[in-house]
Design a protein around this nucleic acid. Structure first.
Lengths: 356, 356
DNA sequence: GAAAGATGTGAAATCGATTACACATAAGGA
DNA sequence: TCCTTATGTGTAATCGATTTCACATCTTTC
């Protein structure tokens, strides 16, 4: 069904049908005829043809590194909230942690009818920079700093520093309690190519430790992917290599979940078989292994089932909201002044469990 | 930059440029000229124009109910794997658990240039049926049975039944151990509008219990959303209303995570304050509350941090793979015979923690 | 009653690509 | 030599919508 056929059936010109659809001058009489024909045929105008002509899709493309992530879903929730309020729809493209695919999908969106793109950033390669510099459609980057596009990012350095301080304090407390200054801090981080998480967050963490007179020893640091699985393996290696770890700080809560699993698996071997029956030994282990885990991201799932670990809450939803607003300002009002926005954080320490 | 401008710059016709891009007859000499101009200008052909003409986008749209879900991400991983191998790309639209939005996004995809649509189904309303019946582009439904489109779904009834049997057996064992047949089974399910999870899975569960001579009492059943939060609240209510619950079976692992949290919160109040220090009381509670939780979906995150609960593994990735294959068969080979495919399951019981 | 303005209408151009077609030219086979 | 066949090339039609433009008609307003 095309607009021409509808026009023919209704005995009018295709222009009239188009006007009917878009609210131009059409007489009541013809309106009725057209309405009837459209109703009968179930005609739906082709969006591609309209967009080709009007250059307006009321669509925003969002490129995300992965789909199964609480933090990312919080960002997209924020984006979606703003977009739908302002009459836009959101399309997602997931790269599955493959920065190569990222460019592919960015280009896909650029040449498909979307009015703007939001990139939830991980690594910003030269390929990314080139794209950002001469993209045909406006782009906003969320989660990473870049000078090549409007961006919204989090205070990863500050968050890392706060966590570093907390961890150092915790360790000192433990030293005091046991009366001996044994026990070290391990860190499971991510690739340095990720400036926000791999560099700022980690640097901040080190600086926080340093301000308390502590240090991260090279042997106690591992670099992993953004997955629970790789966190698990790294933590297990650490535990097997070094017996004096008291705290494992992880770059994300997801990695921290893997570390928790590793501690449970590793410690079990040192727990008397009779301590608790199978599958219910976790708390015993956590109590007696004496190894603490910290993360970043304030994952609600993790908090619920473990009671929570020290972590950092970032305003992910807010960054989505601001990112979408920024983008729409560029799209609709042609806002030209480049903007970079840094959002704060909130340190979260495990609380007494309370009814909520 | 349009193809016309490129043609002008290279001193050829736009047809020649188009042939250059699509591998038609072009002399070496002109090829070189065109190549140079494209290189210099960074020209990228408009996908929308091409698709308008060719009716081929090499794109598949996937409509998902939410983005932050392990099961859904497994499905999309399967889809993506097949698509990229066969030269297609995947676009996602998340409805955020709003079936109303589902139709909107389905229609968006229908009129947007995608070659096919995969719907990860929740509820199939009459609106859905109507769409499926007269969609312009082929659609495959994953996760729900429907006669209005090719579909791939899981044996939810069988899985529910298996879980029902397991739970009944577990309860009997507990009765034997304690010597008294006190203790009941609670079930936290989802809306009956979701035929797979809300009806088949629950019916199967009841049938499994029945086959062991047990019954789900109406007061011990709650209906919630597909979220941890609503699972938490429902479980807390159950625990407060009924003191004799021994097992809480949940329709999904996510809901089960909420139930676990509820047990921890609820039981703490009955645990002597000194039993364990703050935040590390979990295992004590899990051991002594004597309340077990079961789920469906084999969530890896939950397994990692809790050691695992009885659950059911569905072949989510497989369903994504098969779904994408089905869709591409229709798109490329015009496969007409309607297909419905039922995938099996595997009951998962918590294992001894082992290194992996 | 004439000018100005609002309301209606369809033909045709347009968006940016692909491709059928007509027409060259060169090479190979009889 | 003549007839196929393969290789190149540009013009123009096409995809399905929107929108400009020219031209009607019908109200106002002075």
């Amino acid at each position: 069904m095309t607009i021409k056929e509808i026009a023919q059936l209704a005995g009018v010109s295709s222009a009239a049908v188009s006007r009917y659809l878009n609210g131009g001058y059409v007489s009541e009489e013809k309106k009725e005829q057209i309405r009837k024909v459209i109703e009968e045929t179930g005609y739906q105008p082709s969006a591609q043809a309209r967009i080709l002509r009007t250059k307006k899709a009321c669509l925003v493309g969002v490129v995300v590194p992965k789909i199964n992530s609480e933090s990312i879903s919080r960002v997209t929730a924020g984006i979606e909230q703003v977009l739908s309020r302002r009459g836009y729809q959101m399309l997602l493209a997931s790269t599955d942690n493959d920065p190569g695919k990222e460019i592919t999908y960015l280009k896909l969106f650029e040449n498909y009818p979307v009015d703007g793109i939001i990139l939830i950033g991980t690594v910003i390669t030269t390929g990314h920079k080139k794209f950002l510099k001469d993209s045909k459609v406006p782009v906003v980057v969320v989660g990473q700093y870049t000078k090549y596009a409007n961006c919204i990012y989090h205070d990863d350095y500050g968050a890392g520093k706060a966590m570093g301080r907390l961890v150092a304090a915790e360790l000192k407390k433990a030293w005091k309690e046991t009366g001996e200054s044994r026990g070290k801090i391990a860190y499971i981080g991510v690739t340095k190519e990720d400036k926000a998480v791999g560099v700022s967050r980690e640097d901040g963490f080190r600086s926080g430790l340093k301000s308390e007179g502590m240090l991260l020893e090279p042997d106690y640091v591992k670099t992993v992917e953004f997955t629970m699985d790789s966190g698990y393996h790294a933590a297990l290696e650490l535990l097997e290599q070094k017996q004096d770890i008291r705290i494992i700080s992880c770059a994300t809560d997801t990695i921290a979940a893997g570390a928790i699993e590793a501690i449970l698996v590793y410690s079990r071997q040192n727990v008397p078989r009779s301590a608790a029956d199978s599958g219910t030994r976790m708390q015993y282990v956590l109590n007696h292994s004496g190894i603490r885990v910290t993360g970043f991201g304030d994952n609600q799932f993790l908090k619920a089932v473990t009671g929570g670990i020290p972590t950092v809450h970032f305003g992910y939803k807010t960054s989505g909201i601001r990112g979408a607003e920024l983008l729409l300002d560029v799209i609709e009002r042609g806002e030209k002044i480049p903007i970079e926005m840094k959002l704060g954080f909130r340190l979260e320490e495990p609380q007494e469990r309370e009814k909520r």
